[in-house]
Design a protein around this nucleic acid. Structure first.
Lengths: 222, 222
DNA sequence: ACCTGAACACCGTTCAAGT
DNA sequence: ACCTGAACACCGTTCAAGT
């Protein structure tokens, strides 16, 4: 029962769904989206690759479960603000920061439509929108707009860090490279993109995200 | 140039980047996101798998190029409406319909941050926002909000059709199943989600999408 | 230059066999 | 019941060898 150092990792506990998910999150955080494989996971858990399938249906199930674990923690940690509007902004920022810390969540969330992690987010956003006075008939369309915006940002951020990692840079370096390529575009066909390239270079992801939330909050019927 | 690309296994044309991209789109449309492999593509083009690498850098390059081809056609086809607002709505709907017809574009777009297909969309949206009177300092944040919303919807729709296909249903059947599972959730923890499950069941993706666009347009500073 | 196709280094998933 | 690990059916990508 005591720790033997074979393979570098302990195996005092028995294999459970929770332990598998926990190890998956560690792997995803440290090695990125591509870092989660059944072989790497099995090695880390000091078991065989097939053993995982006793507790997990398939890779998508694993990814969704890991995603849900992060989302659940995030939803619990998000406090209520001084006003409804503030609460939604705090909630949105909490989600943004969590996805910033775990970029793989953005892409995992895309593969889990209608599943538990999405449900958690919809519930929290929706309750606030309802309290804000959004008419019953508009509730779904409104929460859907907010959700899709958040998912879009999350997905782009995940893609940014992924592509950045592949080129050996961090996300802000990558965005700088994008700004450079945009400012060198043909001015005849892409006048607007050239123009905003400068704003892209000095922008702050978090500030822009919040600006989008504010646009939506302002446009909401109530 | 006349082009009879339909029907034949054997090809008298030489291999070009354009022909590879065209075949990729056909494959993606008919077999879905997972249908595009270098082996399947090579067979369709009556060539070896390695030959493709002479014209294409890697799979991501291929996907982005296929994506760009669809986006470019969509942007060209989109007419200007009677008003600026209308033009943006028409544009957004054009994008929605194109992504509805080619669901794989939604996920491909996620993997191509800052690349040409995104640039095309930003350019068209941005020009209209500028004409609408959005202040220069807000242009990037505004176009970014609109873009991220559109990408979020595109990504979710792609995921919906993908998951639906895996379970052997179409997208509306899948959404119906989601609505069912939502209405059976624990009412104590998920009162809001239970409440909107009904709206989800009778909703229209396209109408909801447009409602989101309208919320953003209404919230925009000008 | 362009193309061939076998080979390489992976992957998710399965399953007979063990405890 | 739970776990093992070899085996299977794939991938994307490379590269010596051909034309």
């Amino acid at each position: 029962m005591t720790n033997d150092s074979k393979g570098g990792q302990r195996r005092e506990q028995s294999l459970t769904r929770e332990r598998i998910i926990e190890a998956s999150i560690e792997l995803l955080d440290s090695a990125g989206e591509g870092g989660l494989t059944f072989r790497a996971l099995a090695e880390r858990l000091a078991t065989g690759a097939g053993a995982i399938y006793w507790h997990i249906a398939d890779k998508n199930d694993l990814l969704t479960a890991a995603c849900d674990s992060v989302v659940a923690r995030t939803m619990e940690a998000c406090l209520v603000g001084p006003s409804r509007q503030e609460t939604i902004r705090t909630l949105a920022l909490g989600i943004f920061d969590a996805f910033d810390e775990h970029p793989w969540v953005g892409s995992s969330l895309m593969g889990a439509p209608g599943r538990l992690p999405i449900v958690r987010i919809v519930e929290r956003l929706g309750q606030q929108l309802q309290a804000l006075g959004v008419p019953d008939d508009d509730l779904w369309a409104t929460v859907s707009a907010l959700l899709n915006y958040i998912l879009g940002v999350a997905g782009q951020n995940a893609a940014n860090t992924l592509v950045a990692k592949k080129t050996g840079a961090d996300r802000s370096e990558f965005l700088d490279a994008v700004a450079n390529s945009w400012s060198q575009l043909d001015g005849e066909h892409y006048p607007f993109v050239r123009k905003v390239a400068g704003q892209l270079r000095v922008h702050d992801d978090r500030v822009d995200f919040l600006a989008g939330i504010d646009i939506i909050l302002k446009g909401i019927k109530r």
